[in-house]
Structures are given as C-alpha cells and as structure tokens.
Design a protein around this nucleic acid. Structure first.
Length: 662
DNA sequence: GGCATGTGTATTTTT
DNA sequence: TACACATGCC
C-alpha cells in the first residue's frame, strides 16, 4: 500500500482547504485572476498566455470554495471551447464541475428562451425553430421575391446583403436607415422598400415561431430586462465569465450587463489585439470601455507567453507597434530563443504552393508529425491551389473554415425534409424541396407553396398539376406524411433519406461523395430522440467538416491543418505557414477603405503569427494572376513593414538540383 | 409565351 | 456554390 504524504494546503476565502495547489501551478498574474472572487475583473490575456488554463482553474477554484457549480456561467465564442474548458475543469476536480453552465451566447439564449420565452411578454412558443445563416437567407429571399424587386430594373440588395444590413442594425443598435446610409449608400433610395422587406422577414419568422441568430440575442437581452425573469436569471448565474470579450458585440455586452446586475460579478477575458469579428458586429470598444463601465474593475494582465519562442513574438510585437490605441502589452516568451521566422518572396502562387509542399515533406522526413503543421490564410479560396499540390504529393490535410458541413446543398436538403416533419407550415423548406423536384421550376414551386399555405391541412393541399411535376410533388408530400408518423428523429431521417436519394442523384454529378455526408448526418441524427432538438443543435453547433468528426477510423490519422485565420483563433501549432501575406489579400482589398477595417486586418496578421510555437514561414507571391491576363505585381503586406528584416529576414526561391533522375 | 434547365463567372472572415 | 443570363422544351 502506498504511504500517505502530508502536503501543506492553501485555504480559500471560504476557509476550505484547496485540493489544487494554485500558487504552484499558475504564474502570479494567472493566480491573481483565479483567486479573484467577487466584483468585476478584466483579464487582458495576450496570445498564448494561458487564458484557457486561467479560466479553467478559476472555475475549479470557485467550486472548491463551495460555489454551487450551477451558478457559474462560462460564456465562450464556440461551443467547442466551452466543452473543452469544462472538461478540463472537471478533470481537475474529478467531475465536480458537471453542472457549470457553459457555451456560446446563442446557446445560452436558446436554453433560456425554451424555458421562459413563452411565459414572458416575448410570447415565443417553446418549440421554436432556430434558423442558421443559410436558413435565414432563404427566408429573406422568399420575402424579397414576393416584393417583385426583379421588376425594378435597378440593382437591389441580394438576400445576404439584406440580412447583413439588418444584422448590423441589430448587433450595433443602429437604426436600419443609418446602417444603409453609412455602409450601403448606393441603396439609400431604396431604404423604405428594404425596411418593408425586413418587416416582412420579421413577420414571417414570428408567424412560424422561428428565430435567427440575432433574435436569440435580442430576446435574451429582453429577458434580462424583464421584470420577473431578469431577477430569476441573475439569481441563477452568480459568477459570470466571458471569454474572447474583444469579439462581443453591443448586444452581447448589454446581455452581460443585464445578467450581472449592479454588483457586476463578471470576469471578462480577452485580448483587444485579437479582435477580428467586426464584420459580425463585434466592437473592440466593449473591452476598451470595460474599465469605465465598471470603475471598480480589477485589471489583470497576462503577458508571459508559454507558446512561442521569442523570435516569433518579436514579429508579433512589431506588427502591433504602429497600431493606434490598444491596451499596453508586450509578449514575453518563457521559452527563450530559437530560429527566426522567414519572409519568403515567391514568384507566383504555384511556387508558393510548391514551397509549402516541399517544406512539409522535409518536416515529415525529419520526424515532425503532420498534426503539428498548419497553413493559414485570409480567405477560404486562397488554399485551392495548395490543396491540389498537397493532393498530388499525397500529404493528408484537413481544411477548416470555408465551406461548412451544414452549408452543403445536400445537407440542407435533408435538414429541410426533417424540418417539414416538425413544422409542415415551413414555407421555406417546402419551396426548397419542391424546387428540387423534376419538372418543377420557380413558378410551379411558388404555386404549390401558395396552395400549401392556404390549405387547411398543409400535408393535403389542393393543387392541380400535370405531368412530371404532379407526380413528383405527390411523392414528396407522401414522403413527408409517412416520415411524420414516426416518433424518433432516427426513424424519420431513415425514411426521408431513402426518398431523397434519387433526388440527390438527379441533381448533382458527384452523388457518391455527397452521400457520405448524408450518411454521417444520419448517424448523428440517430443519436437523437427529438427531431427538433436535433435541428436546433445542428443550427447552433454545426459540425465543422464533413466526415472526420464521426468516422472513428480517421481520428488517429495524421494530417496537416489548412485553416482560415478566423478559424485558427485560439489554436496553436509547432510549424505555421502564413500564405498570401501580400497587399490586396492581407489586408483584403475591400478592407482598405476605412481605418477601422484596416486595423482589423492588422490584428488578423497578429493572430496568424501568434499561432506558431517554433517555426513560422510567411510567404507571398509577387506575380498575381488577376482576371484576364492582367498580372499584378504583389508586395508584402503593409503590416510587415514595421517588422525589420533583422527580426524576419527575407528569402527568395531558386530552382535547385532536380531530384528525379528518371 | 411561359417555364425549366444549362452555362459562365466571381467569391472574406462565422455564431 | 450561387447567382445572372441564355437557350431550348412544352
């Protein structure tokens, strides 16, 4: 038997002895944050400074001091981040953090609204549907079309532009007219019509008990201000922690204010240098103004970087050097010196891809696992050429960002079918599926949807059609009717998918590949009893990529990560390539018009650079093929101007000895 | 004439 | 992939 050993314990404010030796496991600043008890606090956590660790330990510390885990609320940017933190906190304390509430603002809103949405003045049925971005666009499109804007003979905003206008208005609190005047001046004459369409959009959602992402936040805010429910929520959540505070929008900021009440038991954690979601309404000023908002706030700075070697941080610090106001920060590495990052000037995109591929092959040769390598870029399409080269070289990779699972047409189809079994009044889903049928175009689809809307029983509409259209519409109605008789999501989806297969095969030329996706969706769905719960989860937390998440065989496999900078937030790799680091791409040309958006591009560079632990290669092509013959001469991103060649030397690529002698 | 379907082109970033 | 526009079927 092992012998018992005595260890001197620290004692917390509650007088209980801590199991975890916080002082030993944390640095001074982290320790201060973890021990912070009541009242507002702002933790400025630079990249790689152990932010997750700090949050995790604070949760554990609160629980060790006897705080009811259910009264701790951890708001994060993604559900995945929340899961990870709660898992880690749980493992510190043998699972005693199970009941801590954690997730995104949207997930919290969903939870609270299911419970209180119907009873309050909001009057939202508890079985409401959550619309994801694509669904919301479809609804907007339906309303837009009903306004006959095509007949205007004038450019009129597209569905996604309309949604962006409305979303901006909601997320920044600006009136719609002001948003149009400021951000979309070319449509200023159409302000009234746009406003009418937005009203139509909101009416449609209300009638169908649907909420989009913005509504979730709006309704949650309303509930925090509600006479009876507000106090209930504040009673419930006594300790609030918000991660990535720099990426909150005004709405979310107000929700935090509403939830925390006058005492302000809020710990906001973030890094203003990593605010990269302004396009979604995020406002860096939320974090900048936190100290004014809460004059008694404790401010704690985490500056010791555990991730990167100093030469990488030198580049990161230099990128921020000329930035206008930011909280003071200077990242210091705890790891010391190492190889300097390299700036590599490539002749064109081909050479850039070749360089990355050859370097990856060398790394693999010298024993670096592929999982430690990442290639980062500004926008999804910038990796297309590289993907081809990686494929040729047989280097497995996985791409994050860009196309998401739930955005693929065939996945949306299956989800639409499922939705119809839950809500046969869902005109958007009907329209989508009817349009997919053989012999049916926009006109016929509109007629059928109209008939369904007017019918007493949506599944038995009175509509007279002939030929192929008649037969295929009948078969769709029949499929929905049959599937609806089953109770579980799994049974329903099996039925629907059997009907959908020939439709999918007729519509797409690569049905086999698509069908794999459908099958993984079916596999996820099979775990659910309730169809609407499944649909909500898919909308709030869509699987990032197609099969990997589900296929257990692929889990072990080694792969290089390709990712947009946005999707790389919070992650790290040993070896990082930042490609397309040239003017016009990073910053993106469309961001060059305002200082605000330019600064956001600077922060993107900062985020990208600070993902690297050991090796960083920044590449840019000099000759860029613009559309139709005009080649543009590329120059490196202006945000690298302040990075001296001494910190990050420049290299050119020459053709070496050919290796294949065959 | 009305409608379904094919073709070409251009794409930020995401809860 | 999603749109605008052109073509060809009923």
């Amino acid at each position: 038997m092992k012998k018992l050993v005595l260890r001197r314990a620290a004692v917390g404010p509650s007088g209980r002895a801590y199991r975890i030796d916080y002082a030993k496991e944390l640095n001074a600043a982290q320790y201060a944050a973890v021990m912070h008890d009541k009242g507002p606090a702002l933790v400025l956590a630079g990249a790689g400074t152990g932010k997750t660790r700090t949050l995790t330990y604070r949760v554990a510390r609160l629980v060790e001091d006897g705080t009811d885990p259910a009264s701790v609320l951890l708001l994060t940017f993604t559900r995945k981040a929340a899961r990870e933190m709660l898992r880690r906190a749980g493992s510190l304390l043998d699972g005693r953090c199970d009941t801590v509430a954690g997730g995104t603002f949207h997930a919290l809103a969903n939870l609270v609204l299911r419970r209180y949405g119907a009873t309050s003045s909001i009057g939202l049925a508890s079985n409401f549907t959550v619309l994801d971005q694509g669904d919301a666009e479809d609804v907007m499109n339906l309303v837009r079309t009903s306004f006959d804007v095509a007949k205007l003979k004038k450019r009129f905003p597209q569905k996604n532009t309309l949604l962006a206008m409305y979303g901006r208005s909601v997320n920044t609190g600006q009136p719609l007219a002001d948003v149009i005047a400021e951000k979309y001046p070319s449509f200023i004459d159409e302000t009234d019509r746009i406003a009418a369409i937005v009203r139509g959009y909101n009416d449609y959602k209300r009638r169908g008990a649907m909420v989009d992402y913005d509504d979730l936040l709006l309704y949650l805010l309303a509930l925090t201000r509600h006479e009876e429910i507000g106090p209930v929520l504040r009673q419930r959540y006594k300790y609030i922690m918000v991660d990535e505070y720099q990426d909150t929008n005004v709405l979310q900021h107000n929700i935090v204010l509403g939830l925390s009440g006058p005492d302000g038991n809020v710990m906001a954690v973030g890094d203003d240098a990593q605010s990269i979601y302004a396009f979604r309404g995020a406002d860096v000023r939320n974090i900048h103004r936190f100290p004014e908002q809460y004059p008694t706030a404790t401010i704690i700075r985490l500056e010791e970087n555990y991730r990167s070697i100093q030469p990488i941080l030198d580049v990161a610090n230099a990128v921020l050097q000329d930035a206008p106001f930011m909280f003071d920060k200077e990242l210091r590495s705890t790891r010391g010196d190492g190889e300097k990052p390299m700036l590599i000037s490539c002749t064109d995109e081909r050479q850039q891809s070749r360089f990355v591929v050859e370097r990856i092959l060398e790394m693999r040769e010298s024993g670096t696992p592929l999982s430690k390598i990442a290639v980062l870029f500004r926008s999804g399409f910038l990796s297309f050429d590289l993907e081809i080269e990686l494929g040729k070289a047989n280097i497995p990779f996985k791409k994050f960002g860009g196309l998401r699972f739930a955005e693929a047409a065939h996945i949306k189809d299956v989800l639409a079918l499922l939705r119809l079994t839950v809500n046969p009044r869902d005109a958007v889903s009907w329209y989508r599926m009817i349009l997919a049928l053989e012999g049916v175009g926009q006109k016929t689809a509109a007629v059928v949807v109209e008939a369904i809307r007017d019918a007493e029983d949506a599944l038995h509409p009175k509509v007279s059609l002939t030929g192929k259209a008649a037969a295929s519409v009948m078969s769709l109605l029949d499929a929905i009717r049959t599937a609806s008789t089953y109770t579980t999501a799994g049974e329903r989806v099996d039925n629907l998918v059997a009907w959908y297969k020939p439709v999918c095969e007729r519509q797409h030329d690569d049905p086999q590949r698509r069908w794999k996706d459908v099958e993984s969706l079916v596999a996820i769905c099979a775990r659910y009893g309730s169809t609407s719960e499944f649909l909500t989860d898919i909308a709030l937390d869509p699987p990032t990529t197609s099969i990997e998440d589900i296929d257990p065989d692929d889990h072990e496999q080694e792969f290089v990560t390709l990712s947009t900078i946005h999707s790389a937030k919070g992650l790290e790799w040993g070896n990082v390539f930042l490609i397309w680091a040239n003017e016009g791409t990073l910053p993106a040309a469309r961001s060059a018009d305002s200082e605000e958006s330019l600064e956001e591009e600077r922060r993107l560079v900062y985020v990208a650079v600070t993902r690297a632990a050991d090796d960083l290669y920044i590449t840019y092509p000099t000759v860029i093929l613009e559309r139709e013959r005009t080649d543009v001469l590329g120059r490196p991103s202006r945000f690298l101007d302040a990075v001296s060649r001494d910190i990050c030397p420049t290299f050119l690529l020459d053709e070496g000895e050919s290796e294949d002698s065959a």
